[in-house]
Design a protein around this nucleic acid. Structure first.
Lengths: 129, 129, 129, 129
DNA sequence: GTGGTCTAGACCACG
DNA sequence: GTGGTCTAGACCACA
């Protein structure tokens, strides 16, 4: 398994960077169901970060159903993870595209979010009708 | 100026329907800067709705900088309104596209909004870097 | 807001004890949507535990949609939390009842889980038919 | 001994259907300790299924201690089988009840299983205390 | 003031 | 060896 990389400096939290990289590998299939992830301690040492940060990443991924942890054994890519991860990655791409457009149009975050909520509401009422 | 139409029954609030139609006409240029909008009473009668509803629409449009009300004269399309209205309409379209994608991927509103916030944050940190 | 209590000694992790108590109060309605939870630092001091442990609890509750955290403001019971919390508590009660029965019948955890999976499968196939 | 019945088509595997029916008869006492079960070949012909399927059923039942096979003689209901079968049937009923409740509350299988494990753990720690 | 992230290092439980 | 929990205390970001 090739390396991950994290950039320190303030910006995206480290744990989110790692989480995103793992999600992408699962979505791409380079991490397949059943594959073991590096142990918490190993990955922590590799990335020169605190083990607790890795624990947090793995915990989030487990909540998302992308990995399963087997106590005393390790952390493994979950069955059906690829489909879920693909959805996650797709969502991120759509959201990024939307944010790009919104920023170009001069919206701030609050306005962009409000527009999504409005569109959601419209969609809902359209479906009901 | 041709007619507007509103559908009662559960769905989008009437005032939002009217507002959206006016925004679109301004964006399209069929309502140009300086053009008068119907008076509150006239439009209310035409659409058979409460005048207060029209007042609300005009107030929202004024807040958005799309119209200006001149006391004793009436309500007029504001200078530079077309550019702003186009942006508004574009944002709505982008938001609608995003919502469509998010719904297809099975997200609920909270998740969709969270994804936008996350993407926004990512964009911010990327720009800083 | 009256006190929570946690028992140290090994057993249920502290964070799960606190989480369960908050869930129950939300389910019971004594913590209503919009109500603030104690600040992380306050609750930590009250329970004489580390603030990070409280952070963890609040994070889990947010994931479950029971609370929402507003950065710089505090943590609040989320809208619709009562319904969700009631479901959680109900599930816990059903699960506890099942576990009681299974233990009385001499099953170990693996067997009890297997029986649930089998019943689930049966239910699924019955619904399809 | 009256007939068994199996429904083909997608649904529960045939061998589980037969196994469950035998378990229930043992639990009900209509198959008592010492009673012979139909020979593998006889039952297979009667149900128009493959003898290997019947072999599998009898093997499972033997593993559960409900029947014993005596080489050259046949398969017989084991001593003490009724008590054990009752437990099995009871477990199935409890599990089914739990699954019903969990589904109504909108859980998926993973969540339902997790709740059982959590409840099990709680019970364990409660007993220790 | 609030919550969010990260580190360092402890001890426990499972296999 | 593996992951899970908890502490102590740091620094950051939002309001």
């Amino acid at each position: 398994m090739s390396e991950f990389d994290v950039s320190r400096q303030r910006g995206l939290p480290v744990y989110l960077q790692i989480q995103a990289q793992i999600e992408r590998r699962i979505a791409a299939g380079s991490l397949a169901p059943g594959d073991p992830l590096p142990s918490v301690r190993t990955l922590a040492k590799q990335l020169r970060i605190n083990p607790n940060t890795v624990v947090r990443v793995y915990r989030e991924l487990e909540f998302l159903g992308l990995v399963e942890t087997r106590h005393g054994e390790g952390t493994f890519v979950a069955a059906g993870a690829q489909r879920r991860a693909k959805a996650t990655v797709l969502v991120e791409e759509h959201a990024a595209a939307y944010v790009t457009a919104a920023k170009e149009l001069g919206l701030d975050q609050g306005e962009a979010v409000a527009a999504v909520k409005a569109a959601w509401r419209k969609r809902d009422t359209a479906e009901v009708a």
